[in-house]
Design a protein around this nucleic acid. Structure first.
Length: 688
DNA sequence: CCATTGCTT
């Protein structure tokens, strides 16, 4: 029987560890006591004391993320100033959970309870319960390899198997051994901290704890009941030939046949969402809904959508309307939309994968895994009983993979390997990954790092280049570009370029407005290519902030900027992100002693620096107008979003090679092919 | 010749 089974919600005796005075605090205390996890506090703490590694499988709604850190604090796991760290895959989760727990503890955020995510740190010296992103804890490990200030580290949402989580698990396993060893050796940790064992708690929502348990030497696993409402599942009798049409039919069947409650439809991407939205509206104007029935309001949501429009999904529909949310997998885990009672799931997802041999990413539509389908249907049971309509037959469900392939098996490993090298892991092929990437993937990334000068002949991290690259929170190829730009006297330009390349889609383009966008953004376009175009956009935004908003307050000037972004089809969220990254990497560059200079109008110098940095990504035009990528031999095309789409220069360098409907290169600049042999002889000498 | 699931340092 799982712990905290239904019916076991009796509030336990007050142990007087806190007095709840205000009605607000009393209410919070009541809510805490009613969580499924509350009755098992004592047993959980016993298990943590007994086991250095504990796997906790906690279903949705068990309260594990907010309660377990408080249980540990109350059980004095923070004595001697030690900290309990809880990692999350996503920033918003770290921030919102920390705020909730600070409320529950009746303390100000940043005191006993705080969070730390990139660009936003609320913690102080008194913080004892610290929520953070897993990527940030990995960065912290670079500064203190023993993670000595933590007594317990809780890795939450481990079942999501993000690349950061997987690397972190391997790292924590090492740290735990090292900390135990340093105790028996009587060593002191960083800042004179006395050595003490590190407790690890791995929390997962998947039913399969075995993978984690086996990885951690048959670690003890406990199961905690969740609190979810039942969701009825419906399948189609036969496979659907046109799943969009099937989705449309199901939307209207639910709308006309089911009681009130909003609908959530999972689609694969922006284009599909926009076309289904159009189809719904067409059908609404062409057919008469029965007299007195509710109206239907389609609401799109996907990550690239400007935030004002994203907000529409969260706002309750006006009375007499039923919302039908058309979402990508953003609605699977990242955001929770209130009011959903019906889920429609065609069973498909757009997923990124990586071919290390060709150095090419692909973004293709594939069937979901069973756990993904489960996650989607669960979205209908958050507030009450719900229904989920899977647009495929039940026997097809049985054929799905149990879980989604871990990200680490489908991404470029250059960054992971650079981090591990900087953490003192010499033998990457022998590293104890929870799931080992392919040998090819590892070897290819080692090769890439060697070609960038980050690794020496005997595969050691080079000094200073490799060390500097590892310190920068960037793709290794971008870090190298900054180091080179310092020598080419164009670091100012490269900092902007790299910041802009590091964010998703700076331009927001609805499907029906491609030409309109092209006209609006013409004033930024550079004949040399996308890199200089990105610099122009960034500088135009900064100019606007500095000149037109002089003397006004910060909120006002940000408002002016947002308006300007809207007029120019620029995603202001992406632009702000680019400014944050710019500020951060500029700071790193200065600390590293790189020379912060501008090449002024001498863009030739900048383009030559692009070649020196991105020489691995060069392509030449072929007689038929396609391009051949020199390193991989792949035949590719220029992506239609590029300013050089129609220009077709003879020789280009690019930053991304991705297969979608075609093999495309994105973010490119025209260069002279003679520069390749001149500036990257180590790679191109042999080609002649 | 025509288009970018989602996270994160």
């Amino acid at each position: 029987m799982p712990w905290g089974a239904r019916g076991n919600h009796q509030p336990k005796a007050n142990r007087n560890r806190q007095t709840y005075s205000s009605p607000w605090q009393q209410k919070i205390a009541q809510q805490r006591k009613s969580l499924p996890i509350a009755p098992v506090e004592k047993r959980l703490i016993q298990e943590v004391r007994k086991n250095d590694i504990l796997i906790i499988v906690g279903e949705t709604g068990s309260g594990k993320t907010t309660q377990i850190p408080q249980f540990l604090f109350d059980a004095e796991f923070c004595r001697d100033g030690k900290v309990i760290g809880i990692t999350q895959p996503r920033r918003v989760a770290a921030v919102t959970v920390a705020k909730r727990v600070a409320d529950e503890c009746g303390v100000e955020l940043g005191q006993k309870v705080g969070y730390s995510v990139r660009f936003d740190d609320s913690t102080s010296n008194s913080t004892r319960i610290k929520y953070m992103t897993d990527g940030l804890l990995l960065r912290e490990a670079l500064l203190d390899q023993y993670l000595s200030k933590y007594s317990v580290i809780i890795v939450d949402e481990a079942h999501e198997r993000t690349v950061h989580t997987d690397v972190l698990l391997g790292l924590l396993k090492r740290v735990q051994v090292a900390r135990s060893k340093s105790i028996s050796d009587g060593q002191n940790l960083k800042n004179g901290n006395k050595s003490s064992p590190l407790k690890l708690i791995i929390m997962s929502a998947s039913l399969d704890a075995r993978t984690f348990s086996e990885y951690f030497g048959d670690a003890k696993a406990v199961h905690i009941q969740g609190r979810q409402f039942p969701v009825d599942l419906f399948y189609t009798r036969f496979p659907e030939t046109d799943y969009l049409d099937a989705a449309l039919i199901t939307i209207f069947q639910v709308h006309l046949g089911e009681p009130p409650g909003d609908i959530l439809v999972f689609l694969t991407g922006q284009e599909e969402i926009e076309s289904v939205e159009r189809l719904i509206n067409e059908r609404l104007t062409n057919t008469k809904l029965p007299e007195g029935s509710q109206k239907l309001l389609p609401v799109p949501i996907f990550a690239a959508l400007p935030s004002e429009q994203q907000m529409r999904a969260f706002a309750p529909a006006s009375s007499g309307f039923r919302k039908v949310i058309l979402a990508t997998n953003i609605a699977e885990t990242s955001i929770t939309i209130p009011g959903i009672k019906y889920v429609i799931d065609p069973g498909l997802v757009k997923a990124r994968s990586y071919d290390p041999g060709k150095g090419m990413e692909s973004l293709i539509v594939v069937p979901t895994s069973k756990s993904q389908a489960l996650q989607r249907s669960g979205r209908a049971g958050r507030e009450g009983p719900g229904k989920c309509f899977r647009l495929y037959p039940e026997n097809e469900f049985e054929k799905l993979e149990d879980s989604t392939m871990p990200e680490i098996k489908r991404c470029n490993l250059a960054n992971v390997i650079l981090q591990l090298k900087a953490l003192g892991v010499d033998d990457i092929l022998g590293f104890d990954f929870i799931e080992k990437p392919s040998r090819t993937a590892i070897v290819k990334s080692l090769e890439q790092l060697f070609l960038l000068g980050a690794l020496t002949d005997d595969c050691q991290l080079s000094d200073p280049v490799g060390r500097q690259m590892a310190r920068l929170p960037l793709d290794p190829i971008y870090s190298k570009a900054l180091i080179l730009a310092s020598e080419y006297n164009c670091l100012e330009e490269m900092l902007i370029t790299v910041a802009m390349l590091s964010v998703e889609s700076i331009f927001y383009t609805p499907r029906d407005k491609y030409e309109e966008v092209r006209m609006a953004t013409k004033c930024f376009a550079s004949p040399e290519g996308d890199h200089i175009t990105l610099i122009n956009v960034y500088r135009a935004a900064i100019d606007l902030l500095e000149k037109r908003t002089m003397g006004t307050n910060k909120a006002k000037s940000e408002k002016v900027l947002r308006k300007w972004c809207k007029e120019n089809f620029i995603n202001s969220r992406s632009l702000r992100h680019a400014r944050d990254i710019h500020r951060q990497i500029k700071g790193h560059a200065q600390q590293m002693g790189l020379k912060l200079a501008s090449c002024g109008d001498d863009m030739l110098q900048f383009r030559r620096c692009l070649v020196a940095s991105f020489f691995l990504n060069a392509a030449v035009k072929q007689p038929d107008g396609t391009y051949r990528a020199l390193a991989s031999g792949e035949v590719v095309q220029i992506h239609p979003s590029s300013v050089l789409f129609r220009k077709k220069p003879e020789c280009i360098i690019f930053n991304e090679l991705i297969q979608t409907t075609n093999k495309y290169v994105r973010n490119l600049t025209r260069v002279d092919h003679l520069w390749l042999t001149e500036l990257a002889p180590q790679f191109y000498a042999m080609q002649n």
